[in-house]
């Protein structure tokens, strides 16, 4: 940034970028080794596998009942998206537009599930779900995943709604729009970009959320990431390549969602928003 830099400054800069480079290189290595292994015939003690094949994918598909797992994952994700939209969007609107006593308390209520790691409250949550006979059911898995998603949607949407000029709503009222009309014809179209962004991020999170599904799912309603965990956990029962091909399927699914998400939102912004929200 400044006019000149001495050797110390240059070395420091090189050092910083070397750390970043080393990190990214190893990250690439980790991902590439999974992909390469999933395509290899057999790989043991050499730089690359002996040959390449795609049969591990068909193996994984039948061996892990991946079709069923994917179906559960999509069902859970879809239900969570729908649920968090229905519960989260109106709540975010209310929080963005109204001041009322106890607002800070409500904010705290919504922020806690986001900053407390799932494993900390997962076991009590699972015991409650089992208490009501929902443990191990698809409904239970959906409810568990919905839990952190609702506050997540709220905290993404509140700043988004706040930046929409409230006079737009006032104008609509002047032209005779009722509350429902206002919401449907004015607010929803204005909010659509924010809602979409929030929901795509919910999709990414739900696909990646391990702990809550792990603690609440039964054998028939595991999502992809939990199925992957069990197959890695029970390594040795199946060929590594088979596990890796499943990992690749998981990776591709979540990367597609991530790319879609990044088209809508800037990750640093989300963090910044969440940070602001916590400051309330």
């Amino acid at each position: 940034m400044f006019a000149t830099s001495d050797i110390g400054g240059k070395l420091w800069r090189i050092g910083v970028w070397a750390v970043v480079g080393f990190f990214l290189l190893n990250l690439a290595g980790i991902i590439a080794s999974v992909v390469v292994d999933s395509l290899g015939t057999s790989w043991f003690g050499t730089w690359l596998p002996d040959g390449f094949t795609t049969h591990w994918y068909s193996d994984a598909w039948s061996g892990f009942q991946l079709g069923g797992v994917l179906q559960v994952t999509l069902e859970v994700a879809g239900a969570v998206i729908l649920g968090s939209a229905i519960l989260g969007v109106p709540a975010a609107y209310a929080l963005a537009r109204r001041e009322f006593p106890g607002k800070k308390l409500v904010m705290l209520l919504f922020v806690l599930p986001l900053i407390i790691p799932p494993f900390t409250y997962g076991i009590p949550l699972a015991s409650v779900l089992y208490q009501f006979g929902l443990g191990g059911t698809l409904t239970g898995v959906i409810l568990a995943n919905l839990m952190p998603s609702v506050p997540f949607v709220i905290f993404i949407l509140v700043p988004f709604i706040e930046q929409i000029d409230p006079r737009v709503e006032a104008a609509a009222r002047v032209f005779g729009a009722g509350t429902w009309d206002l919401f449907r014809r004015v607010m929803v179209p204005l909010l659509m970009p924010g809602i979409l962004a929030a929901l795509v991020l919910v999709l990414v999170r739900t696909i990646g959320l391990f702990e809550l599904t792990f603690l609440t799912a039964g054998p028939d309603n595991q999502t992809l990431v939990v199925a992957l965990y069990y197959s890695v956990f029970a390594a040795g029962i199946r060929a590594t390549q088979s596990i890796d091909s499943m990992a690749v399927i998981y990776m591709v699914t979540s990367l597609i969602c991530l790319i879609v998400a990044l088209r809508f939102v800037d990750p640093t912004q989300i963090v910044g928003r969440a940070k602001k929200a916590e400051a309330h």
């Binding site: 980790i30 990431v225 890695v232 998981y250 990776m251 979540s254 990367l255």
Partner: peptide, 13 residues
Amino acid sequence: TLGTVLTAQGMLN
């Protein structure tokens, strides 16, 4: 995004 489970499997390799 990839999460700990995939990272773990990749790290094992």
